[in-house]
């Protein structure tokens, strides 16, 4: 029996996000031979639906003003209503996917597979996928009983996007199914992130400091290095959580996306949320005391060292070389 496979299309400003096409690839790998159906929800969807119809055979459109802002508490009742029994639904592992996926799986009586990064051949209704734990320090193989369907969130960037333009898909307007939706959670507004004193997204050389710096007073070591290099200082999330640097210095999925030529990562483990904010393939130099830190997989140059020893020496060498 061929599985009934659906992908949930995230979109912004009338265009499908990259994740939509990555989900198509993931769906085809998990369910060889399947014909995934694209689910598009929101308000004013014609552009996105056409775009998806050029990639897939079938698009279901749910166009309602109430869905203009994604709200998981509105979406789960809709999806419970329209999805067939045993459906396999793929979502991006984004703020929306994390909001919607777990509860939806319970309501559908389906299994839940979060933040999937790889797949292996499934056996009947047993799905086999790969996830990571401990911020990417180790991976795991999972087996999942999907006989009652599955909700699967997929990590952004883990699968190559499916090339588009080959299909002549049908857009089926199912907006009627989304009429009169109500939720116990209502959208009020979006408050954009505050701009900072400097704009790290425009900097060519960045020194990024992570939790490995240990104490707030050690931050000066990274500041002195950045000053010597003529670089700007940025950081991973725990540094912002601790209020040592402003949010406008945070690199990552919930911070800023930077495109430097050189990125020096100091005591950063290399979580996908952090690496997700580094674009344009810079020279990535990582200094970390743990030789197995995942950052060394992504880095171009790696140094296993204690920051507290290496940073002063490096700053001094730079001054000498000038």
């Amino acid at each position: 029996m061929v599985a009934k496979v659906f992908i949930f299309v995230a979109h912004t400003d009338g265009k499908a996000d990259d994740t939509a096409f990555e989900l198509v690839t993931a769906a085809k790998r998990l369910f060889p031979g399947c014909a995934p159906v694209a689910l598009v929800t929101g308000s004013g969807l014609d552009g996105v639906c056409q775009e998806m119809a050029a990639a897939l055979g079938e698009v279901w459109k749910f166009d309602q003003a109430a869905l203009a802002h994604p709200n998981a508490e509105l979406l789960w009742p809709l999806l419970v209503k329209v999805l067939p029994a045993g459906a396999m639904l793929l979502l991006p592992h984004s703020s929306l996917g994390m909001d919607l996926g777990p509860g939806l799986s319970v309501r559908l009586g389906a299994a839940y597979l979060p933040d999937v990064v790889g797949t292996e051949a499934s056996e009947g209704t047993t799905l086999r996928v790969i996830r990571q734990e401990f911020n990417g320090q180790v991976s795991t193989h999972l087996h999942c009983d999907a006989s009652g369907g599955a909700v699967i969130t997929v990590r952004s960037g883990a699968f190559p996007p499916e090339a588009t333009g080959s299909a002549v898909g049908q857009v089926s307007d199912r907006s009627g199914d989304a009429e009169g939706l109500t939720a116990r959670r209502t959208f009020v507004e979006v408050i954009p992130a505050e701009a900072g004193d400097i704009d790290i997204t425009r900097e060519e050389v960045l020194v990024a400091v992570g939790r490995g710096i240990g104490d707030q007073e050690n931050l000066a070591l990274a500041e002195e290095l950045a000053l010597a290099m003529g670089a700007a200082l940025c950081c991973s999330r725990p540094i912002v959580d601790a209020k040592w640097l402003a949010k406008s210095r945070q690199v990552g999925t919930s911070g800023l996306t930077v495109q430097p030529k050189v990125y020096l990562a100091l005591g950063i483990s290399g979580s996908f949320q952090h690496l997700g904010g580094i674009k344009g393939s810079p020279l990535l130099v990582a200094i970390n005391k743990n030789p197995n830190a995942p950052i060394f997989q992504a880095a171009s140059v790696g140094v296993v060292a204690d920051l507290l020893e290496l940073l002063p020496a490096l700053t001094e060498k730079i001054h000498q070389s000038r």
């Binding site: 508490e73 909001d99 777990p102 839940y112 979060p114 959670r185």
Partner: peptide, 21 residues
Amino acid sequence: DGAAQVGGMLAALLDWPYASL
């Protein structure tokens, strides 16, 4: 384990509204 799943599931089991992050 980075799964981010228990809160949303608990809400659904209780049939209470939920918000993540």
